[in-house]
Nucleic acid binder design. Structure first.
Lengths: 294, 294
DNA sequence: TACTTGCCTCAGTTTTTCTACGCGAAAATA
DNA sequence: TATTTTCGCGTAGAAAAACTGAGGCAAGTA
């Protein structure tokens, strides 16, 4: 005979997540991107939250938002709660399907570095199925459903990080193009191929070469490294290459290195993994096959 | 020029919450009740989760569900994540509107014990606005938007708990009814008034009185204590009363205590509060006015 | 045997969430 | 100084998610 209970309800979980993202990133637009929605959706969630709490959480400036002191104070608790929730979800995925591995990495790395190694892994451990998703920036492993991210970074290594290799760049081109290049100054007359994700590789390399003074970095820009690479293979110009990505082509002679000068960049290719994955039984095989340098 | 990113998405937050509740309570029906939805809704959420994780989380028996070992293993992480999230929300509510206090308590306590004291609080601190929600069972303060719960319990006190009073019961009735009651055995001829939430109060009291042997506990049952109380005031029978709830009426003489025998129950009225509230500036005033025994 | 309990499924509905798009204000650019 | 770009707001309509309600089923219980 109990009475119907009109219990007051808390705010919607999605609104809380929107608040957390917006507060953490300090921007509605950035939060929208992280959550793969439009900024308008974030606006609405935040408004719902503010109405529920009867307070204001953000000061809206024309250019971006600022957190109120209250939001600032509350933020850490939300971040940590969602981190924990995300990790619980990761653990679920990892323990439920331990043999399914998801890797996030740069398109170029996926195609040129990772793909060949996946074949080896398949031979060694056919029960493991790997899916690779290419993206420009590393996803947050506490929040997004990946086991491994493989990106270049110069940040210090964390507990579940593995350094895979040091990044080193140098120009490469087709053999017939190399014949006309006897000195660095000859680059003046060549098309310099750029990749938009590594826009200033040429600048960095050139400025490290005293002999290169005054050479302009104009040239063709491609949005995908692999397209620029294709162009270079067909003699379309000189590409600033990353060691790890072109080594097989150099070995096969499809590309050559016209100058011996290389530049070591201050960042490494780092494999970062969820802690669930790092402690899972399949980690060993994957690590041995993909990441250990022999 | 970046490519459109078809990022894989995690499970929906509401599904996670449904899983957490179902796993914690070990029952879809109970989870449905906690979340104020129908059991069918829980079923669907769980199915979504299981499909996402490509695993089974519950073993469905004809009579209830059992957790799979996997769900069992994962449960604590989810519980703690949602606890933390709930606490963050509570902190938000508390800091955003510190002067608005929400109390959950039994209907009888709300009306007979709390209401008079709220008047005193309003005089002492008119800036504080209290809203009282009556319910049969204490809500989980980590999850539901209340600052204080006020319920009878015999559990040991936690850090943010305050013992308000010991529970003590004894029969009461209208003065004219009391005139016909000279000994406990006279109860044989009276209507015994019951409250459904405290169904066996009469049993307990009677069995503690040697002289009451054989008296039946038949009588009228009301779903609200206050209705039974009203009945008693109008001479409709003898009510088993809780000390704290009837004291003002005894003082005013509207009810009398026909026998001196009282029974101390092994539980207390306990005020439990969120830790945000316990550390907030208004706590002191509220505590002094409502809960301190003079 | 009939009842009860607890979960399932399906269809239809309600609620929530999202997108689309135009507006406005400041900062960056020219 | 004028123009463009960047960010966020607001609204309407559309899409997606969540929920309800009713009928079923299987295994205990009376």
């Amino acid at each position: 005979m109990a009475v119907a209970p009109p219990r007051p309800k808390g705010p919607h979980l999605n609104a809380l997540r929107a608040f957390e993202a917006a507060a953490r990133l300090g921007s509605f637009t950035a939060a929208a991107e992280e959550l793969s929605v439009t900024p308008g959706a974030i606006t609405q969630h935040i408004k719902t939250m503010e109405a529920w709490a009867e307070t204001t959480l953000f000061v809206r400036n024309a250019r971006g938002v600022d957190l109120t002191p209250l939001a600032e104070e509350l933020l850490p608790a939300f971040v940590s709660a969602f981190d924990q929730l995300g990790q619980a979800v990761q653990a679920l995925r990892n323990k439920a399907t331990p043999e399914k591995i998801k890797i996030a990495t740069l398109p170029a790395v996926a195609q040129l570095w990772l793909a060949p190694r996946l074949g080896i892994l398949r031979q060694l451990a056919p029960e493991i199925s790997v899916s690779v998703v290419a993206m420009e920036r590393p996803p947050n492993l506490m929040r997004e459903p990946f086991d491994i991210t493989l990106f270049f970074t110069s940040d210090p290594l964390g507990a579940d990080d593995l350094e895979v290799l040091q990044d080193r760049i140098f120009p490469v081109c087709a053999p017939q193009v190399a014949e006309r290049l006897s000195s660095i100054r000859d680059l003046h007359n060549e098309t310099l191929l750029h990749d938009s994700a590594w826009a200033n590789d040429w600048d960095m390399w050139l400025s490290a070469q005293p002999a290169a003074k005054g050479i302009s970095t104009k040239g063709t820009t491609h949005s995908l490294f692999s397209v620029a690479l294709e162009e270079a293979r067909h003699g379309g110009g000189v590409l600033m290459a990353h060691d790890a990505l072109v080594r097989p082509l150099l070995i096969r002679g499809e590309l050559v290195q016209p100058f011996s000068e290389t530049l070591e960049l201050p960042h490494r290719l780092v494999a970062r993994m969820t802690s669930s994955f790092a402690h899972s039984p399949v980690f060993d095989k994957v690590n041995k096959t993909l990441f250990s340098r022999l």
